[in-house]
């Protein structure tokens, strides 16, 4: 059981390293949009305001970067027949889903986490908030990965990327957006209350991380069986 779990993670990472565009795309998008924000605001805006707007804007960028890479999650496996082999294999599909989630998080979310110092410097965020930001960002990217996987599983039969995936995921992302921006704002103003928001975020993450993979499993089984 655990060998196939590790095999799938290794296979996914190997596949991503053969075409490194998968790693680079989210970072590139993230950097481009981060550059555009200060340009779109007036040049007279002072540094404190930029920090407030930037800290909120990050969460929209994170969402869009994840939506951009969402199609790599299940669609290729569905079209080349890998998915149906996984459904039919003796390994429970839920293990494979968790392996896919972990590898997708490493490929898409970890690069964004690694660029944190850069946008701290770009948006003049206070340096003492750095560790807290990493915790909030880590938590919300895990949650976002699970939500994206649910959206991707429901739309796996579509050949091209549509606005539908965004439409499905956006309402589920709103609590994350609110809690994460509350927490990051409190963090920038050095209020201790950011911890309680982060606890809420972690609680929702735990709930979704335990509940949604089961629904993803049944969605994928259904989609492959009706192929």
């Amino acid at each position: 059981m655990s060998t196939s779990f590790i095999t799938i993670i290794r296979y996914e990472l190997l596949q991503a390293s053969r075409s490194p565009i998968a790693f680079i795309e989210p970072i590139l998008f993230f950097m481009l949009v981060s550059m555009l924000l200060p340009l779109s605001l007036s040049s007279h805006i002072d540094i404190d305001q930029l920090a407030i707007i930037g800290a909120g804007f990050i969460w929209i960028c994170v969402l869009l970067a994840h939506l951009l890479s969402l199609h790599t999650l299940f669609r290729d496996d569905y079209h080349d027949g890998t998915l149906i082999q996984w459904v039919l294999s003796p390994t429970p599909l839920i293990y494979i889903i968790y392996a896919k989630l972990i590898s997708h998080w490493i490929i898409c979310s970890l690069p964004i986490l690694l660029t944190t110092p850069l946008w701290f410097w770009l948006f003049h965020l206070p340096e003492q908030a750095f560790c807290g930001f990493l915790i909030i960002l880590g938590c919300s990217t895990v949650l976002l990965t699970v939500l994206c996987a649910m959206g991707a599983a429901l739309t796996v039969q579509q050949n091209r990327q549509t606005i539908l995936q965004g439409l499905l995921i956006l309402p589920w992302y709103i609590p994350v957006l609110i809690l994460a921006s509350f927490a990051s704002n409190a963090l920038c103003q050095q209020q201790i209350v950011w911890i309680s928001y982060t606890y809420w975020l972690a609680a929702i993450t735990t709930l979704m991380l335990t509940l949604l993979p089961f629904l993803i499993t049944s969605a994928l089984t259904m989609m492959t069986m009706s192929q």
């Binding site: 649910m150 429901l154 499905l168 309402p171 589920w172 709103i174 609590p175 929702i204 709930l207 509940l211 949604l212 629904l215 049944s218 969605a219 259904m222 989609m223």
Partner: peptide, 16 residues
Amino acid sequence: ACALLGIVGLVNLPII
């Protein structure tokens, strides 16, 4: 698929 979407929505509705 829509039934599954409804279940996820139902879980998320109070959180939202």
